[in-house]
């Protein structure tokens, strides 16, 4: 009887993860794509210096964007199964992809006036490990230097 209850709980968790998680992911992706369209064309480089612009720099500041995202129960189970056979773990690929793109967007949205963002760096760390050393959630931090050019009037 007890085993049956446990199985029931597991099934509920898995199906909850599968359905709700899938909807949430779809919604998140559509929000990412929409916001990426808005931020399109903003010069962002991983180079250390200002590129392709001779204007004098007025000021600069350190900008950051970070996010913590976790996988759902179903995907965690899937990834656990994947560990047996090896190979691509698609469940986690979307997790880190979402986190990176979200962090980048937050960085861009934090400085709407910046002319260029240089020396962009991304850092990923798993901040929470669940049972059996499985990855629970990842944190991605995007940081860079926002550069504001001097306005021609000055």
């Amino acid at each position: 009887m007890e085993a049956l209850i446990q199985l029931g709980v597991l099934l509920v968790l898995v199906s909850l993860g599968f359905f709700v998680g899938r909807i949430a992911e779809k919604r998140h992706y559509s929000s990412i794509i929409r916001r990426e369209q808005e931020q399109l064309g903003r010069p962002t480089t991983a180079a250390r210096t200002v590129m392709g612009d001779d204007r004098p720099v007025g000021r600069s500041e350190l900008v950051m964007g970070s996010v913590v995202i976790s996988v759902d129960y179903f995907k965690r189970l899937l990834a656990g199964l994947r560990n047996i056979f090896g190979g691509r773990v698609q469940a986690y690929e979307t997790l880190v992809d979402r986190a990176r793109r979200e962090a980048m967007l937050r960085l861009l949205e934090s400085c709407p006036e910046a002319d260029q963002i240089i020396n962009l760096r991304l850092e990923t760390s798993s901040i929470f490990k669940g049972r059996q050393k499985q990855v629970g959630s990842v944190e991605v931090l995007a940081y860079g230097t926002a550069v504001y050019f001097q306005s021609p009037l000055q």
Partner: peptide, 9 residues
């Protein structure tokens, strides 16, 4: 709780 359905914490 959020870990069950996934998403941003």
């Amino acid at each position: 709780l959020k870990n069950i359905v996934g998403g941003e914490l």
